[in-house]
């Protein structure tokens, strides 16, 4: 570890860091605390301790359905973004593709454009195309917003790959596809993993796209949460929220086990 910060500047940095931590973690802690409350309404401070809300939520078929929709949607969007994003990033970085910068900018544009508007535009477009299957429409919309994460992280890790490794493999007799699989891919695995984690969480957590493209039968969890909340704000909402937080934590732990989080986040 580097030396500790000291003096007035150091105190300011520590205060800022502590404040950030409080504003990120404290609201989540409140949500989790409320999910165990015995009160009939989700109001702070929580009263008593019960796991009844979780039992109710998990038994709720609508919740089960929404949870499955979200998990499957996130997995499908992540897998598709992986399958499209890795080759796209490779081609954009390594091949003399005409208009590569334009294509990259287009692929990354969901980062910049308001997602709510992207979702609305997509809804109108899909309606004009007479595509009415909400599951398919959600899938398309989610790929649209998760793909940039794969393209971005994979491009960044490709730029860090030492090109002489690839050249060494080439001189040793490796054909271009062998160079890619045996040498390039192992170097960019952390970037791919980080991109997949981002993609999964962005999709799992997505509201603005699902808001336009979902319907009553295919309703992702965030939309379900929102509609439940507008009916009654009891601690079951916070129990569902806590389960979403848990899913995120499990995804991070899974990534840590798979490639090591430090490595993955170093892109």
């Amino acid at each position: 570890m580097a030396g500790r910060l000291s003096g007035g500047g150091g105190a300011a940095v520590y205060t800022m860091a502590a404040a950030t931590l409080v504003f990120v973690a404290a609201p989540l802690a409140v949500v989790v605390a409320l999910s165990f409350s015995e009160g009939a309404l989700a109001t702070f401070p929580p009263v008593g301790f019960t796991t009844a809300w979780y039992e109710a939520v998990i038994a709720n078929e609508e919740f089960q359905n929404a949870f499955m929709v979200s998990v499957l949607l996130a997995l499908a969007a992540t897998a598709t973004s992986f399958a499209l994003g890795v080759p796209a990033a490779y081609a954009l970085d390594r091949w003399p593709v005409p208009g590569a910068r334009m294509i990259e900018a287009a692929l990354l544009s969901p980062f910049i454009l308001p997602i709510l508007i992207t979702g609305l535009a997509l809804l109108q477009f899909l309606a004009a195309m007479k595509m009415r299957d909400a599951a398919v429409n959600l899938f398309i919309g989610h790929v649209l917003v998760t793909l940039p994460y794969l393209v971005r992280t994979v491009t960044a890790s490709l730029k860090q790959v030492d090109r002489s490794l690839e050249e060494a493999a080439t001189t040793l007799g490796a054909a271009p596809w062998q160079v890619f699989w045996r040498v390039t891919v192992p170097q960019i695995v952390p970037g791919i993993a980080a991109g997949c984690l981002f993609a999964f969480m962005v999709s799992f957590d997505d509201f603005p796209i699902s808001f336009w493209l979902g319907d009553a039968e295919t309703m992702p969890l965030p939309i379900f949460l929102h509609s439940s909340m507008s009916k009654v704000f009891d601690p079951s909402i916070t129990a569902m929220s806590s389960l979403m937080i848990l899913t995120g934590i499990l995804a991070v732990i899974g990534l840590e086990k798979l490639v090591g989080l430090r490595r993955a986040m170093s892109v």
Binding site: D162, S164, L165, E167, A168, A169, R182, V183, P186, Q187
Partner: peptide, 8 residues
Amino acid sequence: FQNYALFP
């Protein structure tokens, strides 16, 4: 190569 270029 100057930087050895061993596969890490």
